[in-house]
Design a protein around this nucleic acid. Sequence first.
RNA 1: GAAACGGUAGCUCAACUGGAUAGAGCAUCGGUCUUCUAAACCGAGGGUUGAGGGUUCAAGUCCCUCUCGUUUCACCA
Length: 592
Amino acid sequence: MVPREILVSSKCLLFTGDFLYRRNYFMDEKLQVANALSAALPDLTVNEIEEKIERPKDSNNGDYAFPTFFLAKSLHKAPQMIASELVEKISQDGFDKVVVVGPYINFFLDKANVGAGVLQTILNDPEHYGESDLGHKANVTIDYSSPNIAKPMGMGHLRSTMIGEAIARILEKVNYNLIRVDYLGDWGTQFGKMMAAYKMWGDSQEVQDGLKSDPINTLLQLYVRINTEADEHPEYTDAGREWFAKLEHGDEEAWRLWHWFRAISLERFQRVYDMLDVKFDSFNGEAFSAQKMEEPIQLLRDKGLLKKSRGAEIVDLDKFNLPPLLIIKSNGTTTYITRDLATALFRKRMYGHAKSLYVVGAEQEVYFKQLRMALKELGFNWWNQIKHISFGLMNLNGQKMSTRKGNVVSLEDVLNDSVDLARKQIAEKNPDLKNADEVAKQVGIGAVIFHDLKNYRRNAVNFKLEDVVKFEGETGPYVQYARARAESILRKGGIRDFSNVDLTQVGDGAWELISFLSQYGEAVKRAALNYDPSVVAKYALELAKKFNQYYAHNRILNDDPQQPARLALTQAVSHVLKSALALLDVKAPDEM
RNA sequence: GAAACGGUAGCUCAACUGGAUAGAGCAUCGGUCUUCUAAACCGAGGGUUGAGGGUUCAAGUCCCUCUCGUUUCACCA
């Protein structure tokens, strides 16, 4: 067996310099536990033992535990007995203690030394703490937000936008290279309708004024109007189709209108993206892909995959137990599917991605299965790089949010409301705060974002304003506040360079906190593997909670020899909280 | 009718590969600011994890049946 350095003394750790700065202490400590056990279990390899080692839920049961159930059969003994026999053969060197509790052998790590190592790692390189290399710099395209042109962004868009942004940031943390794409819904019959509506009613003074003050909602009103009146005037629908056909055939006026609608929409979207601090690498939407549709159609034809059915051309997916994919409608026009196939081909060619993620609502699950299978049928071996990151819908009073029904809550309004509320809180709690406006934005918007990300993404959420703008309990501001307190102490503590501080002096009361700090990287990995930002959000909440508890029970600014070590701990917590919040695209004000 | 996902405290949600007494927040009741920011901390009450069966030393977690809810099932995206 290759000897691995596992029993390095703390003094060595403290002064050995750069090479260990990203060392994951707890992984190594787990190996230490496995090695200790292997002396008593000669029939098992260290790896086999390591796999069985777990982390007790209750920290009173130690830092690592080894359950002995699985040995009961082969040894023909009760697990409790096995545990007490094994522990006799285990060296306690390097541990605070090793004890038997029923069928478990519980290991308590050397708190002072391991704790010092963890703090050292964080303080040496806070920017990179928690990073790992799952991605090897591979390219990942991520398609998220993707609003429709000429419709305002509602609360529903927050989900795709923030889940997408957070996943992108998390994947970057584990060394993927992200390409963020906002696949705008800027094509289709709906634009024909919009143009037809504008041509019919757009000259009125009311509309002209509206287009100046609130263009996107004015357009929306035109769109809603033509849709509602189309029931009585079927010719409106025909006019819409006609205008879309003009657009498809390159009619000059249609294109001029299209560009104009798109520009005013993008300008408005950008305001929201700026508030949320979300930046895309590409805004190539459906219109862009619409120009690339010949290739997938030709490929499907060449492979004999296109079949006539009910006057349309489809790809039959019966053998995958899926409904057919409608490629060409009975009236000869294409669908979003054709554009998505073109998009997939383009992205693969353009970015050479290792994964291609689509952050889209759960209601499109079947559709993405179809898309993957169609690519598989076409013989593209990268079909399974396409992943649908689905999320639960946002409802309003138990009803689906729908632009057409008008039961939509404006995202921008909610963000502004939340910022206003945060501003009021600041005026009340910290009236002397200098950059109150900036902090109000960070807190208000942070609360909205955090609320959207803290639960498992597949859960459906019912929109309730009072829940979204809550600043107490399990919220973004709770985490921000914990860090602001830490920063406040650090400002008063006077030390920012901890390189000469003896970190072993931090005290046993800090162990719970330090042990949790060491788990950050694992949490980030789990979030990345499951494409689940809520793992990071829960980690941040838990860390904030542990720090708040520590804060309440330990005086950090107490003039004693341990104070520098406690400040170092405070600094480490602040770093990790800021990092976790950043992964969620939530800002961390130093003061609030 | 079929499929996918879900049902955990009054409400909103946790529980990493099956593990030790199923945990938080909100709400309710009570306690803590002349000392590091009370957006906080401490305590109390609140549970047959939808129902039933099975596998296992061990099931909220895996399998089966039933039930309720949401979503989807080719010319919207």
